[in-house]
């Protein structure tokens, strides 16, 4: 397994997944790094697809550990920007934050599994990869995903958008 190749291909997606789940880019970096350390520490091998599934399954478990500790869940709902945004003007940063808050609040109303399935699917994962990472049957992913989307939209109110949540 080539570290540079694997890291370059998988780390950005792993980070985005952890970032989406935790709402905290610093924590996401910690967890994504931890996942990679475990990958090499435990000498995980296999196909590219299997490797990707292992990475995201491990990251999912790590995020769950954080959620169970309560700390991340609090962060998730607070949706605070931890990292300085460089040259971004303050008003733009505020607007960006305001766009993120309702999304995180809606995610906060989902179950842990619903959150994971939703974020993985919208991160480009196949049903099989999701099933493997979350620990459900591939045939049930569609149903779980549809339910997660419905529950998300029932709570989510996008700024400036109208959507009939009864649909």
């Amino acid at each position: 397994m080539n570290f540079e190749l694997t890291f370059g291909e998988q780390y950005p997606g792993l980070f985005r997944y952890c970032h989406s789940l935790t709402g905290d880019p610093d924590l996401a970096d910690d967890l994504a790094q931890e996942t990679f350390v475990r990958l090499y520490d435990r000498r995980v091998g296999g196909t590219d697809e299997g490797l990707r599934a292992w990475l995201f399954r491990t990251a999912t478990h790590l995020v769950r550990d954080e959620h169970r500790a309560g700390e991340s869940h609090r962060r998730l709902l607070e949706a605070h920007p931890v990292r300085p945004e460089g040259s971004e003007p303050p008003d733009e940063a505020v607007q960006r934050r305001e766009r993120v808050v309702p999304v995180r609040e809606a995610l906060g109303h989902l179950t842990e599994r619903e959150r994971e399935i939703l974020l993985m699917r919208h991160g480009g994962f196949s049903y099989r990869e999701i099933a493997d990472a979350v620990g459900v049957a591939p045939s049930s992913v569609g149903t779980l995903l549809a339910r997660a989307e419905r529950n998300f939209v029932n709570v989510y109110i996008a700024p400036g958008e109208n959507y009939d949540t009864s649909r």
Binding site: Y11, F15, S20, R83, L119, H122, E149, Y156
Partner: peptide
């Protein structure tokens, strides 16, 4: 339509890129 709305909403979550030092840290 619902899926498109969710995709649009979730796209707002990513507010930062991985730290440049991530590879070195690992």
């Amino acid at each position: 339509e619902r899926g498109a709305l969710v995709t649009q909403a979730l796209g707002r979550l990513i507010t930062a890129a991985p730290t440049e030092g991530a590879r070195t840290a690992v």
